[in-house]
Design a protein around this nucleic acid. Structure first.
Lengths: 185, 185
DNA sequence: CCTTTATGAATGAATG
DNA sequence: CATTCATTCATAAAGG
């Protein structure tokens, strides 16, 4: 697997410093290692240390590390949430009467679009995504869907490992994953 | 990061599966309809529903819908911004002092910072590019440039026309450098 | 062929 | 934290 672009141009190399941080493969690798290792939300101190250590591979700032973890975790959860939602819909929420799906209606062209604002509200008829997720997370279904979500989920954070570990985090071929979309070559 | 496809070219062994999502005309039509109808940023739930509905026209996944809206809006905005910029330059308002332009998003400076939770405040030395745009969008000039897009631009969203200065001259130095102790948890 | 354009995808950076 | 924005990357299609 070829690695990331690594491209020599643009920022990465630490040009005048106008662009955004472009992590080197080494940095990414290390960051991911830490993340998988369980570090999900580094403290200020940790961020500093990490920054220092990674700086030997390329220009990097504390905020980069900070954001990296923020984003990584967020996207991780986001994916999870989406899957849950999909499953949830597919399993529990059938349309009231076997009809297609309730909320969405043909929003044809602009012509008669009934005051956009309305539409938006119309669609907004969903339940708070966050709460929904929370609730759903408590439902056993979660187990199912976690199945294909590789075991990036580590122990630390929140509840102490004591509780339980749904799956043996066998460090499967992490990466790639995604919604199994169109298997990337 | 988790991936780094980089797939050289055509997956040799990759199943004929397919690379990325290729929306069918029907899907595109519906998506555009919704977009024009006012839906610019669907919620997670909406994405799921849309996905379900569009799936009868062809293979599609939640993330595709998500990205579609994301990109569509972004590009829409980008074009708008460009036009505005052009008009802006061509007409009135020259930079206060022969300087170039108000950097739409020049983030710079901000050196590393140790603080944790509040790190953000530390590097928060840039100017709000988004707001700038917003302000610009509210300027009457907008009307002009919208001309050639026919009604594609939905009439909803944002605030109603109002007269106001094009640019925030409030560049009040943010030199506030007091960092006292920032009691960090 | 090689550039240019359009667009799906990914991710760094913010904001609230 | 969840969401959103801006940029950038990777490709496929279109045009010279």
């Amino acid at each position: 697997m070829t690695s990331v672009p690594v491209k020599g141009t643009t920022s990465g190399g630490g040009v005048g410093g106008g662009s955004r941080w472009c992590p080197t493969p080494e940095q990414v690798m290390l960051l991911e290692g830490m993340y998988r290792g369980g570090l999900k939300t580094p403290t200020a101190t940790q961020i500093q240390q990490i920054t220092a250590r990674l700086s030997i591979y390329g220009k990097i700032q504390g905020k980069n590390v900070f954001y990296w973890f923020q984003n990584h975790k967020a996207r991780d959860r986001q994916k999870l949430r989406k899957k849950l939602m999909a499953l949830y819909q597919q399993h529990c929420l059938y349309p009231p009467h076997g009809q297609s799906f309730p909320p969405l209606h043909q929003v044809r062209g602009v012509e008669d679009a009934p005051s956009c604002k309305k539409i938006i509200n119309k669609w907004k008829v969903d339940l708070p995504s966050y709460q929904t997720c929370k609730l759903m997370c408590e439902c056993p279904l979660m187990t199912m869907m976690m199945m294909d979500q590789h075991g990036t989920t580590s122990y630390c954070e929140r509840v102490p490992p004591k509780t339980l570990q749904l799956f043996p985090v066998t460090t499967t071929a992490v990466s790639e994953d995604d919604q199994s979309s169109t298997t990337k070559p």
